[in-house]
């Protein structure tokens, strides 16, 4: 009985994080983006500096009619937002925020495998939406999503493999237990490749060619309204949390930090994740969208070779220090 309670509590906490953190990131994006453009951003909803803007947005989305186009593949069309959103919830379960059993939703031995495989499923949601909408823009968006997935999954996996090699384990807490501070310069190239490829996988600007709202009208999401569209948006922001959390765990040492007591490791994890999330927003505000061919070129001619070089470096250093 106690075990069941424990599991329920863990699931509840992870679910709570899953519901609140994306909103915090979204609100931060509203405000940071506005100030980076010399604006104020939302100021009214909730009274104090528009803190409840996303709550108001959610209420608006919930009120909207749920429309399914007549030509659409009804079941797939309605299922797609859930397929896009749920994988991130599952990944969140496996990310450790502190040392020990108590600070992770579920310890998974093959953590990296699980996390990367499930994250790949999230992109399927966009593909399903793009195909099932029976819309030219959606189809274009879906195809671009597929091309981007193919291009960026590879460097991401290679970069993650490099860390697994360095630690000698594929368990996420195991990697963190083996972490030393000098891994940071050692794996820095892999970290950058992982982060950039992750951004591309989330279709965040500047890699948002598949959803490019100014040319193909949000790509795969063209036909979506109301709650289902909101779920896609939530998936994007949950994806940011997951990507930043994973980068923190794999490359930035998670709960390890230069200062702080033993019990405060989770503060370090959250802090690093928050800084990375800010970086995601910052990159979005700063850079224009990459063209489709530039996007492919960046992956195949830069990120893949870099990640291979990182693996080679990891292997050499590993052999030398043994």
């Amino acid at each position: 009985m106690n075990d069941a309670l424990d599991v329920a509590l863990r699931l509840l906490i992870v679910f709570g994080v899953f519901l609140t953190f994306p909103l915090i990131v979204g609100q931060t994006e509203h405000k940071v983006m506005a100030h980076m453009q010399g604006r104020l951003g939302p100021m009214y909803a909730g009274g104090f500096h528009g803190w409840a803007q996303l709550v108001a947005d959610g209420v608006k989305f919930a009120q909207k009619e749920d429309v399914v186009p007549t030509g659409a593949d009804r079941r797939i069309f309605q299922l797609a937002p859930a397929v896009a959103l749920l994988p991130y919830l599952l990944v969140l379960l496996a990310i450790p925020i502190g040392p020990g059993e108590g600070a992770v939703g579920e310890v998974i031995d093959a953590g990296i495998f699980f996390v990367l495989a499930v994250m790949g499923v999230g992109v399927l949601g966009s593909l399903m939406a793009g195909w099932a909408s029976a819309n030219k823009f959606s189809l274009l968006g879906g195809l671009r999503t597929a091309a981007q997935l193919l291009a960026y999954e590879l460097p991401m996996l290679l970069a993650a493999a490099s860390v697994a090699m360095a630690a000698g384990t594929v368990s996420l807490p195991g990697i963190l237990d083996a972490f030393e501070w000098w891994w940071l310069p050692w794996q820095i190239v892999g970290a950058i490749v992982f982060f950039v490829a992750g951004l591309a996988e989330l279709q965040r600007p500047p890699f948002d060619m598949p959803v490019a709202d100014s040319e193909i009208i949000f790509g795969a999401y063209t036909e979506y309204t109301g709650l289902r569209f909101a779920l896609f948006l939530l998936a994007e922001y949950a994806g940011i949390i997951v990507l930043c959390g994973l980068t923190t765990v794999l490359f930035l040492g998670g709960w390890h930090g230069p200062w702080g007591a033993d019990g405060l490791g989770w503060v370090w994890t959250l802090l690093k994740t928050a800084v990375l999330a800010f970086l995601v927003i910052w990159l979005r505000v700063t850079y224009p969208r990459l063209r489709e061919d530039q996007l492919q070129k960046l992956s195949w001619t830069l990120l893949v070779p870099l990640s291979l070089a990182q693996i080679a470096l990891t292997g050499i250093v590993k052999v030398v220090i043994q």
Partner: peptide, 21 residues
């Protein structure tokens, strides 16, 4: 050039906004 772009947005963020309420 990429770094310059990041610097521009960061600097703008620290400046006063031009929005009139």
């Amino acid at each position: 050039g990429l770094a310059k772009g990041l610097a521009v947005t960061l600097r703008t963020m620290t400046k006063k906004t031009v929005t009139e309420q």
